[in-house]
Write a protein that binds this DNA or RNA. Structure first.
Lengths: 222, 222
DNA sequence: TAGATTGTTAATCGATTAACAATC
DNA sequence: TAGATTGTTAATCGATTAACAATC
């Protein structure tokens, strides 16, 4: 597979292609053209073809793309077949929500262990995943290869836990705390899930919509 | 305030400016230049100034920007001072995580009510928010003005609830289900929080990193 | 006043779109 | 073969960066 420097925009579209292809598969569709795929995602056919051509030639001229073959290619590009392993730190509401409803395995990630500070949780199992004491995190990371840490601790614990993680070989963090972990010169890959950023974008669009409505109403008035 | 058509990239940066300005405020910083602000967010000073100039003139030549004044401007642009109201549907783990840990009020959104189907929850209160039967959702929406619906129901209920929402005047949905709600021709504003997209992007970057490491190791070998 | 930094115009860069030869 | 659709190059568009006059 080619692995040239690919723009961030392209990378962010790959998971959307994957979801759409899974949806098509479920509906029994087994071939699709760049034009059809683009229409369903709000993209031009050119963009779809350009995106795929960053990584190789996945289609067949005059035919289009085979849904399951293309799906497999994209899954490979995204690293879903690499057997990445992860641990989750912080079995609160958001941690439990992920353990319960989010199928890590569906996306090729093995959730190997969870950690918390609360005695009532330590030593128990939740959804088939063992919960350990955070005090054991360092030892665990030294004994086991872990690719990704899922950070779902309270804000106050975020920095300390992050230091334990990065100090013990973790170079990728899926961050659900609203603490900014991205040290400017850091070696660590951080993917932030900032709920507030998402809600505020929505709020912006609602405000814009309300202003438009008000402008219309004012025009009617006259 | 100007409200010209602003690019999506700019809109997505606004919440980041807001968070950074809050952080600066907390640290007692009361003025900042576009250069300093840019450095702390990984942006050029030009970009920072261009972004703000989409909406007005918030700085002072030779001085820079007043942190709290700029913060207030951005809050206004994002609609945080409009008193938007919201309801949450689905008081499962993710719904509870939001109700418990996410301060809607901090972002100018009032969470007015929650809805669920489980008898054990209906009629109770969680974190000061009343939980109603989903069967009452339609009546509630007709009786109360609601700007935003927070959708945290299981996948299987997503479509039916969305129809109730859009059929009763809701034009903005904050969607936590991994169902694609964005009807191509829809009037509804949908902001998706797709956990899987986020994790897969992270997975991509990890895969890229591992490939680089492997390439280095292979070079050492020779 | 001199220094600093904005607001804004112009230049550059990169991403998206269009076009078309290759080919299934 | 004729029709369809890719892969890929060229053209366009928009976003970012650079530059600088205005001005605090």
């Amino acid at each position: 597979m080619k692995r040239v420097k690919v723009s961030n925009n392209v990378i962010r579209r790959l998971p959307r292609y994957l979801r759409k292809l899974d949806e098509l598969s479920e509906s029994g569709v087994d071939k699709i053209s760049s034009r059809q795929l683009g229409e369903q995602l709000g993209l031009t056919s050119s963009q779809v073809r350009q995106d795929f051509n960053c990584f190789g030639e996945f289609g067949q001229q005059g035919y289009g793309y085979n849904v399951s073959a293309l799906r497999a290619q994209i899954a490979g590009i995204l690293g879903m077949d690499r057997g990445f392993s992860s641990v989750l730190i912080g079995v609160g509401n958001i941690g439990r929500a992920l353990m319960e409803n989010f199928c890590f395995a569906d996306w090729g990630i093995h959730l190997a262990a969870a950690f918390d500070v609360r005695p009532a949780l330590i030593g128990t199992e939740y959804k088939g995943v063992q919960i350990y004491d955070v005090a054991e995190l360092e030892a665990y990371l030294r004994a086991n290869h872990v690719d990704i840490a899922v950070l779902t601790v309270p804000k106050t614990a975020a920095i300390a836990v992050t230091e334990t993680l990065t100090g013990n070989g973790i170079d990728a963090i899926w961050n659900f705390t609203n603490v900014e972990l991205t040290a400017p010169n850091s070696h660590t890959i951080v993917e932030n899930v900032h709920f507030s950023d998402s809600l505020l974008s929505l709020s912006y669009f609602v405000a814009e919509r309300r202003d438009e409505e008000a402008a219309w109403a004012a025009r009617e008035e006259k």
